[in-house]
């Protein structure tokens, strides 16, 4: 049963593998160029596992000791995870202890696949989502590790391969778009984030976008009598 779930989860993680290889190798290479030992790359990639934060934290790691700044940076960059959790409260029910691993490894890409795809009917939902997250996590570890170790020998004359992750999000977006009733909330997300990107400084735009999203949802899609199931 687990093997079937793994097989079902694998194809959708291929774009993640491609994108993570590109970004993770870049991260590992950057860390090694900054003079960090590979132990740090492994520790940070496995314990933090948040690409955007890992890149953003490099200047902090090379500057004077400031743990509060590190904590605030992590909260600010990763505040979007709170939406991921709320969106997945329904799907992540009754799946046992492995739920904790799934939450720990809930990055953008795993989230997008978790939330926008449904497990094949003959496969256990918990294991399907578990393997999506675990595969993505493993790809990132492999990429950061090999980037640090071999980065200097990996050709870097192709740029833009990280666009594969944008493409993944966009296609999952299009899949959700097919249902008419989803569209206004999809547009709320696009509009609120784009607006806040234009009006707010880079550091805070996600926080503002999230507040805008909640406000706009209440306006365009108010409460009707509804029960919880996705």
């Amino acid at each position: 049963m687990k093997l079937k779930a793994l097989k079902a989860a694998f194809p959708l993680t291929l774009p993640v593998l491609t994108g993570y290889m590109f970004l993770g190798i870049a991260y590992g290479l950057l860390m090694s160029n900054q003079g960090f030992s590979i132990v740090w790359t492994i520790l940070i990639s496995s314990a933090v596992f948040a690409g955007a934060l890992q890149f953003a934290s490099i200047p902090l790691l090379t500057a004077a000791f400031n743990p509060i700044a590190a904590l605030l940076l992590a909260l600010l960059v990763n505040i979007r995870h709170i939406f991921y959790g709320i969106a997945l409260l329904g799907k992540y029910r009754k799946i046992g202890v492995k739920k904790n691993i799934m939450i720990f490894t809930l990055a953008d890409e795993a989230f997008s696949i978790n939330v926008a795809t449904n497990h094949p009917p003959d496969i256990d939902a918990g294991w399907y989502y578990f393997f999506v997250n675990l595969l993505c996590y493993s790809y990132w570890q492999l990429a950061c590790f090999s980037g640090h170790l071999l980065g200097a020998w990996i050709p870097d004359d192709i740029i833009g391969l990280d666009f594969v992750l944008t493409a993944l999000f966009f296609v999952l977006f299009l899949n959700q778009w097919k249902k008419k009733e989803n569209r206004k909330n999809l547009l709320v997300g696009v509009f609120a984030t784009a607006l806040s990107l234009f009006i707010v400084s880079r550091a805070q735009f996600l926080l503002v976008a999230m507040i805008l999203i909640v406000g706009l949802i209440f306006i365009v899609d108010p409460i009707k009598g509804e029960s919880h199931e996705q």
Binding site: F83, K94, V115, F169
Partner: peptide, 30 residues
């Protein structure tokens, strides 16, 4: 899981899967 989820969270939980995907697309293009 063992506690009832507040109505407003359930309400958001049904809409955020879509709004957040819209957010991610723009975030990836930022």
């Amino acid at each position: 899981e063992h506690k009832p989820i507040p109505k407003v969270i359930t309400y958001l939980g049904l809409r955020l899967p879509y709004a957040t995907m819209g957010m991610l697309v723009v975030y990836a293009l930022k």
